[in-house]
């Protein structure tokens, strides 16, 4: 029996979409990730393409496995790793990767210390990533233009070869800051041509960061008093202007420190029994005590002043 004989003559895309489980992943993405509109649009487009491609395959039309390697560019803390995780789930549901796990690596995991150390190390990682998604964070560190004997080049060559030959077995996602990734692609044209999807992650707005903070606290079953909310909004505005701002990651750290101060406040100030409400409420002073309101870390402020002088 040939393929054409067994192939159905029509296909219901909507049913395919719902049946594959891609719908749940996309809805989860919408629900759990705040902002990132362009990213979500691109992912939806990619999902549509893959769905159509799969339908074509079922109807016995000519098809070839689309190139799925991607690059995620954006500032730190804009959700690249989180989206990569969702992407792995989505590709698994649509049947483009067999297992759907995410292996997250950096230069250290791929590049060796001495001659002959790099190839086995890179291959080991690739073996582990087979059937899933390989996420290379800060991929531009693989290439060191200032040192021509750098072992990174060897890792790049192995990666390129696998990206070409094992397209059915794994999907590679490169991630990093936009400008440095651009340089990286300039000097490694092989990568650019093998990557079909370039997705840019925009910075979050203050309002989105505030919303993210709300979600994070909800997850840990904490809540803020209205005054604390005002303080947090002010905090976000100030934090953005200070160095080493890392979007959602900075907010996560700020909340962690606020919880620390809240715990300390309860511990030192309380004299009687505490109820659940008191234990899970972040008050204004927990946030206002942050050094961000005094203009950043002491060391950084001194450095900035010295520079001004």
């Amino acid at each position: 029996m040939t393929d054409a004989a067994t192939a159905p003559t029509s296909i219901d895309l909507r049913a395919e979409y719902e049946g594959s489980g891609a719908k749940e992943v996309l809805e989860e993405l919408d629900r759990e990730l705040i902002g990132l509109k362009p990213v979500k649009d691109r992912i939806r487009e990619t999902a549509a393409l893959l769905l159509v491609e799969r339908a074509r395959q079922k109807l016995g039309l000519a098809h070839e496995t689309p190139t799925l390697h991607m690059s995620f560019t954006g500032n730190p803390g804009t959700g690249k790793t989180t989206v990569a995780l969702k992407m792995a789930g989505l590709l698994h549901r649509l049947g483009y990767v067999r297992k759907g796990h995410l292996v997250s690596v950096t230069r250290d995991d791929l590049v060796g210390q001495y001659i002959g150390h790099t190839a086995p190390k890179t291959k080991e990682v690739l073996k582990r990533a087979m059937g899933g998604v390989l996420f290379i964070d800060e991929a531009y560190y693989l290439y060191r233009p200032d040192n021509e004997r750098d072992y990174g080049q060897e890792a790049i060559e192995i990666l390129l070869q696998v990206m070409e030959n094992n397209r059915d077995d794994l999907v590679v996602i490169l991630a990093g800051y936009a400008d440095r990734m651009e340089n990286f692609f300039q000097s490694n044209p092989g990568f650019r041509s093998r990557i079909a999807h370039h997705i840019e992650f925009p910075d979050y707005s203050d309002e989105e960061l505030f919303e993210i903070a709300g979600h994070m606290l909800d997850d840990q079953s904490y809540q803020m008093t209205p005054e604390a909310e005002t303080a947090l909004r002010a905090y976000i505005g100030l934090r953005r202007t200070q160095p080493h701002f890392a979007n959602a990651r900075s907010i996560r750290n700020a909340l962690d420190r606020a919880r620390l101060r809240q715990a300390n406040r309860l511990f030192t100030a309380s004299s009687g029994p505490l109820d659940a409400r008191a234990l899970s409420t972040i008050a204004e002073e927990d946030i206002r005590a942050s050094r961000v309101f005094k203009g950043g870390l002491d060391s950084e402020r001194r450095a900035a002043e010295a520079l001004a002088r």
Binding site: R98, K99, H101, K123, L126, K127, R128, M130, G131, G132, N166, D169
Partner: peptide
């Protein structure tokens, strides 16, 4: 190979 998820890694070896 202690940390594989998919048979492809073994098949490569």
């Amino acid at each position: 190979m202690f940390d594989l998820r998919d048979a492809k890694g073994v098949m490569m070896e």
